[in-house]
Amino acid sequence: MFTDMKEALTAEALELTPLDSDQSSTASLVVARHARGKDDLASLLGALGLPCGEADLVRLLPHPTTPDDTPTGAPMPVNAFTATAASMLKNGDSPEHVRNTLGLSESELAEAVKHADLPTPAPDTDDSTTDPEAGAPVSDDTADTDGIEALLSWAENHPAASIRNRAARVRSDLVELTERRAADTAQRQAEERVAKAKAELEAAQKQLRAMKAGGRTATAVQHATPLAPAPTSTGKRTKEELAAIRTWARANSHQVADRGTPAKAVLDAYDAAHRTTNLAEAS
């Protein structure tokens, strides 16, 4: 309070800078937190030159402190803001959702839970939560997504234009990041399919080369080993037949002399091989 009239007149002549919308909204919220009821809120706003229309009062009504005029022994919420949170909790909203939507602090949330007659939420001690219906652990990604969405919803409905604009920018960035992640995932999956197809093609080409090499070897051996005439009905083998048997034996890893009749085991093996070949050709 001024004691000098000259100083008082000088201060009164100072030009006041009008508040912008954000400053006005912040000042109204601070005033509402200290008001006690609708009439008190309207009086305080009018005295400070802040908007005090019906729409402004409705927006700020959850914040004023409710006067304690209830009978002794009947508990009453500290203020209408807490009462709103307690009502949401009773309707089944999760404490996390209520806190993010209303912008509650930990102490305010605990007070709302107390007035809603609900057990106080225990602090998170695990990296995951449990789905009450399926009983399976829910990853932190789902909880984080719900929290981000609730925070964005709160910001998009905030009375301050700067908060709403920031929420719009954040949501746009989230959409862009989601699309980029989807594109990167699709590209990685396509690269994996291409790599798998290349590996299968290389394996098929290797198998084909092996088959071709095996066919050429069999053809070379067949041409290198002349077909010997079938043994005569008398059981004796001609010189030409014995020469063919020796050639066949050497080609099939049998040891035979340069002259004479090969061992009986070699003759039997030769006859068995040619009987199989003749049967295959006949079929």
Rank of each mutant, 00 (worst) to 15 (best):
A8M: 14
A8E: 15
A8T: 04
A8G: 14
L9G: 00
T10W: 01
T10D: 04
A11M: 05
E12I: 04
E12T: 07
A13D: 03
A13M: 09
L14S: 00
L14C: 00
L14P: 00
L14G: 00
L14A: 02
L16W: 02
T17E: 11
T17I: 12
T17N: 05
P18Y: 02
D20S: 01
D20K: 01
D20H: 01
D20F: 00
D20C: 01
S21Q: 14
S21E: 13
S21W: 08
D22M: 00
Q23G: 14
S24A: 14
S24C: 11
S25D: 15
S25I: 14
S25V: 14
S25Y: 14
S25W: 15
T26Y: 10
A27Q: 10
A27I: 02
S28C: 15
S28E: 13
L29N: 08
L29K: 11
V30A: 15
V31F: 03
V31Q: 09
V31N: 02
A32Q: 04
A32G: 07
R33E: 11
R33D: 05
H34S: 15
A35D: 07
R36L: 05
R36N: 11
R36I: 11
R36V: 12
K38A: 06
K38W: 09
D39K: 10
D39W: 02
D40S: 07
D40N: 15
D40R: 08
L41P: 03
L41G: 06
A42G: 08
A42N: 04
A42D: 03
A42P: 00
S43E: 14
S43D: 11
